[in-house]
Design a protein around this nucleic acid. Sequence first.
DNA 1: CTGTTAGCGCTTTCAG
DNA 2: CTGAAAGCGCTAACAG
Lengths: 330, 330
Amino acid sequence: MAQEAGVSPATVSRCLNTPAAVRSDKRQRVEDAVRKLGYVPHGAARALASKRSRMIGAIFPAVDNALFGCALEVFQQELAHEGYTVVVAASGYDADLEARHVRNLLQNGIDALLLVGTARSPDIYRLIAARQIPYVAVWRSDQTSEHPCIGFDNIAAAEHLTDYLVDLGHRRFVMFSGQLDGNDRAQDRVEGVRRSLDRHGIPLPANAILERPFGVDEGREMFRLVMTENPAPTAIICGSEPFAYGAVFEAAERNIAVPDQVSIAGFDDLWLASQLSPALTTVRTPQREIGQEAAKYLLARLKGDRIAPPRPLETHLIIRKSTAPPPAAL
Amino acid sequence: MAQEAGVSPATVSRCLNTPAAVRSDKRQRVEDAVRKLGYVPHGAARALASKRSRMIGAIFPAVDNALFGCALEVFQQELAHEGYTVVVAASGYDADLEARHVRNLLQNGIDALLLVGTARSPDIYRLIAARQIPYVAVWRSDQTSEHPCIGFDNIAAAEHLTDYLVDLGHRRFVMFSGQLDGNDRAQDRVEGVRRSLDRHGIPLPANAILERPFGVDEGREMFRLVMTENPAPTAIICGSEPFAYGAVFEAAERNIAVPDQVSIAGFDDLWLASQLSPALTTVRTPQREIGQEAAKYLLARLKGDRIAPPRPLETHLIIRKSTAPPPAAL
DNA sequence: CTGTTAGCGCTTTCAG
DNA sequence: CTGAAAGCGCTAACAG
């Protein structure tokens, strides 16, 4: 390659990495040779010599749904523009598996890492710190955290949604939550609901918080459960949208009127929320923006800028048709 | 590291790669040293020396939906078991972007590559062939193709579904298809519908095939369009399930009875299909199995086995409530 | 601005 | 079964 262009290997390298540092005539010769030979630099060799792999790791709880899929897609796109490649792994909400993936990715020499949430063993953060690579924890913006976060305030979002339902007149709530263990987003959302209710002096007994793996069928099942209780809740807050879908579907099947008999609210505003009937009242969370901002942040750190992560991203309460004042007669 | 264990670097390498080739006492010493030092081999150095990166590329049209997300998740899991890491990219159904991703991944030294569909420029296949790495084209099983395929027979699946609708008595069909250009799966599905109708002597005029980007809203729009025509179709076949969701939602909103007035059938059987009301008649396609078989196949090739890709995977016609005989009076 | 010179941290012959 | 030696293909000082 260097011979073909009649220059030294170092010059070829410079053409590829810092073209501005090469006089244009030589650069031209190199570029021609590159095209002629179909030359493609060897990634591993570059990585070994330069100590940068141009790969960025991303570990999501799952990638088989629109929620994280959107963020992943945008994240990948942004990084591809800058010549970075994304290595993904799915943890299945399993802390051990996540830890193994972190180790594995670090070993593969990723230049930066994206993780979801901040709740994990300090060992993992130590591993990352040892490698001195930029990383970011997404989906949650915790100003008190020592880790760089990009996301939104799950507590405030849940609190706001709950306030809205309280203002409508609701007093008997249940919450459908994803598994709380190790999931700080889920914990935050419960906390937000609790804060609002506390502030309004409304009780939220422990058995009013149902915890299940994420899924539509789980939403259906919880809905059946709570609606056969007496008194039944007048408002159901779902910490994850699939639960809300399940609740709405189950309500339709059992002829329970939504929102007249019971209000149902979700979280995330995925594509289905607005299509459902009744359309779902929910909190719109910035999935794509998270992917984008995370990419921007890591790219900046990779360039050496010591920028701080952005302020919490905004969420929006989207009021649709699945919520209304509670039934008058009790 | 080698010093810590009191052996040569070569022995350390052997312990990591072919432990069976090292006597157990030395192996023990090395393993202890690994643990003590928290030693993690340097991926790029391994890749450079061994000419294998232990990374596998995967380019999907999109990863922000359950369809490809499921396949990606399983693919990644299977490969992680064997110590491989998955590098993903999304092409956005754009051939140029896909080509750039292929080049980029090849440059990063992936050991194998997964692609969706077989329709792409020969240049790309040449690039891959030049690298001599195993690859597989998924989502489609084309026995006549020169490329290793893992998937199902889209033509037969669509044909079977159409046969079913014809048997129900339908004669006026429309098809909602994704963009056909560069998408062999979409083309196959149209072809399958056409074959069934031809065989039954039922016409399918060109304007009965509507082509749109994938999406629920597009499904709604096409539904509005065709249902205001006279005569309106009695059966709508959707080449992609979101179109069917859109059609069902729009029908509900406009009080068009499904299936009494019009039958709607989808393709893929994603999680929503069974939850919809009416529940959607659709073709179940083996998304997860594709991910799994693709991983198995590539792993085998990577080990040197010259196995052939599996036979076409099975699809199943799932008959639910969104299809019925056409309205009697015409 | 450009060439020369050393490696990057592993794996892999090849002897022993 | 094990060690010594020779790179893998590139980048990063360092002179010129």
